[in-house]
Design a protein around this nucleic acid. Sequence first.
DNA 1: CCTAAAAATGGCAGCGCTGCCAAAATTTGG
DNA 2: CCAAATTTTGGCAGCGCTGCCATTTTTAGG
Lengths: 325, 325
Amino acid sequence: MITLTDVARAAGVGESTASRVLRGHGSFSAKTRESVLIAATTLGYVPNRIAGTLASTGSRLVGIVIPSLSNIVFPDMLRGANTVLVGAGFQPVIAVTDYELGREESLIESLLSWRPAGVMVAGLEHTERASAMLRNSGIRVAELLDTDGQGIDIVVGFSNREAGRTTARHLVSRGYRQIGYVGHDLNRDLRAAKRFAGFRSALGETGLDLAGEEIIPASSSIQAGRDGLARLLERSTNLDAVYFSNDDMAIGGYFHCLTRGITIPDRLAIFGYNGLDVARSAPQPLSTILTPRVAVGEMGARLVCSDGPPTVVDLGFELVEGATT
Amino acid sequence: MITLTDVARAAGVGESTASRVLRGHGSFSAKTRESVLIAATTLGYVPNRIAGTLASTGSRLVGIVIPSLSNIVFPDMLRGANTVLVGAGFQPVIAVTDYELGREESLIESLLSWRPAGVMVAGLEHTERASAMLRNSGIRVAELLDTDGQGIDIVVGFSNREAGRTTARHLVSRGYRQIGYVGHDLNRDLRAAKRFAGFRSALGETGLDLAGEEIIPASSSIQAGRDGLARLLERSTNLDAVYFSNDDMAIGGYFHCLTRGITIPDRLAIFGYNGLDVARSAPQPLSTILTPRVAVGEMGARLVCSDGPPTVVDLGFELVEGATT
DNA sequence: CCTAAAAATGGCAGCGCTGCCAAAATTTGG
DNA sequence: CCAAATTTTGGCAGCGCTGCCATTTTTAGG
């Protein structure tokens, strides 16, 4: 493997000179520059950032911890973060927790051992030890996609609880009274649980109660939404609206209605969460809450790369009145 | 920052002993183990893998280069790779090229500077220099999701060309004769271009010609498929089937038909590619080619972590007869 | 042409850890 | 109880690079 020393020798200069040329740091003559560059190219030199990082201080790595890659929300956020990070000269290192806090803890530990410049993690809930590690790491920590709780350093997101509340108020104001819920595993998806909690509480404040609920014990999917709604409607025949834990589930519900010839929104209203493309482009655009996922990733990345005091940024959400309520 | 030396001193042992205990390598007494572990915990020691990697040889990093995070195909593949990689003690480092070969080149360069244990990259097409860097890197290189071409080391995927051909033969055997195509930017998505090429050539072999095509210059999306089909049908009114560049596009087309009351498959047949959930769970399951994306990621990761001769693994694909042809 | 200031350069000590090796401690077997 | 075998341990030289500093070369100014 070609090292900087090899390049320096081939170019007939000292290694620190070669290093300066290759990094464009400090001063060197045009002639020197030339010969070093030629030597590097000729030898096919690939710098060793491991060594570079150890020698200097601070890597250009940023750790990103997300629960899943299957739920498009996280790739979306990742995309926003990636754009900003790469633009600022950082490399993302991703870790996927599968919605398990224990795994999150060990992944965070492992990420920190790479001495990243910062860490971005989805959500505010972590194990005691994970929180402690993040707090003591001495690097910037951004917690994303949720503002319902106490953050460590940087928090960028929106209130899931409030999203649930907003949905409930919307449905009630539209005249729906027999409202059901179809959701997925809430023990793992803590943010979906917060939405549901907000939804129930706002519903309660209007004097209403949930007219039925169906929670499937798996992760969210279109098929799960289809099956969930089918089961719910078997039990609760008089529903006039259903709130789904997210758009995937809601689209499944929508498909179920199409299949069964259930008229939307007259016979049944449907409301989702996320504002996915598929929801927007459906024959009847889904009524949903549009979340700024990409923007959260961008803003989180921007803040992680900067310094400043701990910050909370609420990017809000937007209720999209589709054709299903 | 706490170093191994600090831990060793606190535990009253030498640093190599502390290192052995912490890594569970070599031999040490139970008593020593105890005191080192206590010291490490007390001090909140976080190992520095940068230093560790430099001192030993070879990192536990694996670079993954993909064109996009928006197209679910890549997160799917990533998921498969991630599972295997993490299971084998590796950390993925991802880089997103935005379908630009030039950017791919510089990302590969940057990844290699982390001295990864291996690299996984989507596709077989790279710039001259990127190929050279990969070839000379001395590490395992897996090229994924495509087998139509010459690989560098490990190739895991399936033939996109053949997928296109299979689709054409299927449509023809089903009796369709006026077949159109709706696609997205083929200059960037090389694999979609290969499918289209295969499709056309197989169609030609049966004596047929494409009855119309509409290529939108943007990346694929449901809305693009909707708009694309709408435009195509304006021009070519007598089509009996349409092949879409992928399922996102096809679902868009499906939605267009639902909206316009175009009966599927009687008035118009629709065929996609990928086998996405949304396609499978739609009221009329989409006829499509199911690709083993997750398995490709898994297998690629497995091979990248092992040693052995250069290999090509064709994982094939499956034609799923839905309700839209 | 000489001196002072500025620019360019090279040497070398680490960064924190691992791997090697020799030394010390312990166990085994007779 | 002792020698031999085995286990445990610590010292130290790097891994390849950067940052500091001293030295050399060049340029500027008189």
